Each structure stands twice: as structure tokens, then as C-alpha cells.
Amino acid sequence: MESVYEAAGGSEGLVRLARAWHARVMADDVVSHAFSHGFHPQHSERLAAYWAEALGGPADYSTRYGDETSVVRMHSGNGPHEEMDRRAIACFDQALDDLGVREPVRQVLHDYFAWAATTTMARYPESADEVPDGLAIPRWSWDGLQR
């Protein structure tokens, strides 16, 4: 059985998805605030590499850019942001629609993104200093979070 990564189109498919999501986010009045301080010029490519690793693809993110701790710290210390999370998920779903992503991979990608946005990326709202060292990128499959 192919991985979610493969079903999503591999690296190229996830780069397209990351770009489509980022375009949707930047057009959203609430979610775009998260990028008001600026962002890395290769944000979409890095995001796609992170998603790839989480979804069963190569460990390029961990090898080149950092571990889960570094990702979670980037998303921590900004207080609770449920509305932003909800809208980021809506932007993700719109990006899936924009690209014509079909079932069953569409639902799995939605579930992964919604889970990540509302759990790991929202776990430390008070301070990035609370994020423990050495976290590994969680793995997601057709059956959800892999333990």
C-alpha cells in the first residue's frame, strides 16, 4: 500500500499544496497575521518537506532544517489562537479543493493538518521555552497518528 506521502503526489504534490495553502493564508485577514513578521523565502518548500516526513516520505526536513522541537517552538508563545487555527484549517481545505485533491487522501490530509494545528502546534501557547528538546516529527498514516 502506498504511503499518504505517495498518494499526495510526493514532494512535488506537497510543494504544490504548501504553496496553495500559503496563498490562501496570505489572503486571510486573521491567519496572515502569523506571517506579519516575515517568513523564510523557501517557506513552502520547507513546509512541504516537513509534511513529507510526517506523511511517510523522506526525512529531508529533519536532515536539513531541524526537528519537531524547532517547529513547535516557532509556533509557541503566541497565546491561545483557536480562531486562527480554525481559519488555517479552512485555508488548508480550500487549498485541497484548489488542487482537486480527492478522497481518500483528501480526508487523511485534512485530518493530519487539523490535528497538527490544534495539538502539537498549539500545545505551548504561553512560552516557546516550555517546548522540550529532542521532539521527533510525528508520523501520520492512513490510520492517523502512529504511536
Rank of each mutant, 00 (worst) to 15 (best):
R147W: 12
I137S: 06
M26R: 15
H37A: 15
G79P: 10
G13T: 01
D60S: 12
R147H: 11
L47F: 07
R64N: 11
D60P: 01
V25P: 04
D67H: 07
H40D: 12
A27L: 08
L17Q: 00
H75P: 01
S36R: 13
A122D: 12
A136M: 05
G77K: 03
I137N: 04
Y112D: 00
D60A: 13
G100K: 13
C91M: 10
H110T: 02
E68P: 10
M26G: 07
L99T: 02
Y61V: 01
G9P: 06
D93Y: 15
G144W: 05
S70K: 07
L14P: 02
A122C: 05
H33W: 15
L96T: 11
H37V: 09
V4W: 13
R102Y: 06
V30C: 01
H43I: 07
D133V: 11
L99E: 04
A136D: 12
P80N: 11
A88P: 09
E103Q: 09
F113C: 02
V31Q: 14
R106G: 00
G79S: 10
P104Y: 06
P104F: 09
S36N: 11
D133R: 02
D93T: 15
P138Q: 03
L109I: 04
R64Q: 11
W142H: 08
L99N: 05
D67Q: 09
H110C: 01
M1T: 14
D93M: 15
W21C: 01
T119I: 13
S32R: 14
A116S: 13
G57E: 03
Q42D: 06
R139P: 06
L145P: 12
E83I: 11
P125D: 07
V105M: 06
E45P: 00
R102H: 11
A128T: 00
G56S: 07
A136I: 00
M121R: 09
E130V: 00
Q42T: 00
L109P: 00
H33T: 10
M1R: 12
A23Y: 03
V71W: 01
R106Q: 03
G66C: 05
S44H: 05
V25F: 08
R106N: 01
G38L: 09
F113L: 03
G10Y: 05
A95W: 04
R73V: 00
E53I: 04
